[in-house]
Design a protein around this nucleic acid. Structure first.
Lengths: 337, 337
DNA sequence: CTGTTAGCGCCTTCAG
DNA sequence: CTGAAGGCGCTAACAG
């Protein structure tokens, strides 16, 4: 039978109002009485009942703005699933979530979204931050004003935020390289294709990949190519690269799965591939044996956690860890078949 | 602003008591009025506020008994972690968890624990069921009486339960075999060591392993050995097996990690190993390069889910899916380093 | 068959 | 500085 404010009030011989003020340090209470109450609370192992607080919090209508960096993308569908699950859970607490879409890597638009969100009385922002001076400056300002900002799946170096949720990109790069090495038996030539380095995570992943190839790999990494976000352009570039490097039979690929699969089909030799992120296209390709493995970074969990952090914060002022790293999972055909 | 009972009451021109009775089908309400209320609830998208219900539920003091099958074991430490997290979450709702330990695979003791739990007014049981007639019969009886039983990390065939939470053992066996095949490059000889087949999951995992080896593997599976739970005896058996089969250089191992590591050290040749379950010993061995990979089955999540299911059930009579399969994760050195 | 009410634990406002 | 009281939404007991 957990202790309640009432229990403490009875034990201390005061009213629950006083106990509440004392424990929440809201002043207006005799210091000696406050001390005694705190003492008692500890002894009686008091922990505020979150659901009761929730019922009260409900009247405050907290709003969370989720600000993306890209139009549409299967990876973000997964993230959104997690966000929606969390959204349902916090609804009873009177909290809500609003999504602000954005054209691909358009920092001006992202900035406007931030401003709109604040105008519309958002109490916190979850953002996939584009690494541009515009956004960096804005987030810096918000942090200075103690406005809660949570980075989701990406981050900005040197810019403080309440929390930053993403995978360990460097490690994720190393895992990709390791898998290629394992699959190849340590002999062969590889190319890595990565998306825009405007997102810092991609830079870090690239470094991890290069780290492994340079130190621990039998097969050699011939090139690292940055692909544009537009699928048609990406396909052309990727196909050309694969045609040009005729000794390359292994690839590590992060981006739109269809782009890679199409390019691989266009050329006339077999390519063994490891992909990042489990889109529907990647899932099918894995089942068919077109690709060897997929590395994914718990997108749903990332989305869920970003909201949950703010929920905890609104409910009980609890600060999350600054950095929350999500696991990278390795998936083979046998994992899903 | 979510709809409340009050809102519906106002819209229907009745009191909230009537609305509540109508929506919960508790009778004592004019069928026509009830129909109208249900209609309104749908239109206004009413969903009961769980936290408000929780405050009321709190007075009912639901108790969950967790009944294990084994004394101690690192895998179950992880399971317990998940259970404890869930326990904290449901405390505010007046629900509690009690653990009943058990000597290794002692079905009589497990039966007594079930009986004790019920005598001590447990409202539900989470159990790692030993596959013995004694336990099978008891659970069968409980199910007939509609007493909620949840199977955790293992199951009983043909015996109904409210839910069954475990990994896909067959798939997990296939993944293990696939990894050995991948690591070996498809050439070599292997032995698989598995724990007691009193637990049905182990039988299924064994089948999965054999399935892959018989159909898709380059390396050959020489034998499958069932090891006893006692580490000293297990070490002797394992060492002897490895010494006898001098051409075997790959093993798939499920059980106490220290047993395997000691046995591998005792013999005079290098063995490449894949382990199940990420114990501290396995973690270190993976980092040191003593073993190649580990397959784990989200034990913490399994424990958490077993409690969470019952929480949902007590709070809102929501029935879980009959079978909840947890992912198997593949972990290499690069995943943790 | 229907309405009213007390209360779950906490927070906030208003009196004193 | 302290106490009392109302209310968050739902449930259950009790009147009518």
């Amino acid at each position: 039978m957990p202790t309640t404010l009432k229990d403490i009030a009875a034990a201390a011989g005061v009213s629950i109002g006083t106990v509440d003020r004392a424990l929440k340090n809201r002043g207006r209470v005799n210091p000696q009485v406050a001390e005694k109450i705190k003492q008692l609370a500890k002894e009686m192992d008091y922990h505020p009942n979150q659901i009761a607080s929730g019922l009260v919090t409900r009247t405050r209508h907290y709003k969370i703005a989720v600000i993306l960096h890209i139009t549409q993308n299967e990876f973000f569908e997964e993230i959104l699933k997690g966000i929606q699950i969390a959204e349902k859970e916090i609804k009873d607490y009177g909290m809500s979530v609003e999504i602000y879409p954005c054209d691909d890597f358009n920092d001006k638009m992202q900035l406007r979204n931030i401003e709109n969100a604040i105008e519309e009385k958002a109490n916190a922002i979850v953002i996939v931050p584009i690494n541009s001076p515009l956004i960096r400056k804005k987030i810096q300002d918000l942090s200075k004003q103690n406005f809660p900002v949570v980075f989701l799946t990406n981050y900005l170096d040197e810019i403080p935020a309440m929390a930053s949720i993403h995978c360990d990109y460097f490690r994720s790069g190393r895992i990709g390289a390791m898998l290629l090495n394992l699959i190849s038996g340590g002999i062969g030539h590889a190319i890595a294709f990565f998306p825009s380095t405007v997102m810092l995570g991609n830079q870090s992943r690239k470094k991890g990949c290069e780290d492994y190839f340079s130190k621990e790999s039998g097969i050699t990494l011939e090139r690292v190519i940055e692909l544009p976000n537009d699928p048609e352009r990406a396909k052309r570039i990727m196909t050309k690269e694969l045609e040009a490097a005729s000794d390359v039979n292994y690839i590590l690929f992060c981006g739109d799965a269809d782009t890679a699969l199409t390019s691989m089909n266009r050329i006339n030799r077999q390519i063994h591939a490891v992909f990042y992120d489990l889109s529907a296209a990647a899932y099918n390709a894995l089942r068919n044996g077109q690709i060897c493995a997929v590395i994914e970074q718990s997108p749903e969990n990332q989305g869920y956690t970003s909201i949950n952090i703010l929920f905890q914060y609104f409910l009980s002022k609890k600060l999350p860890p600054k950095e929350i790293l999500m696991d990278s999972h390795i998936i083979f055909k046998e994992s899903i078949d």
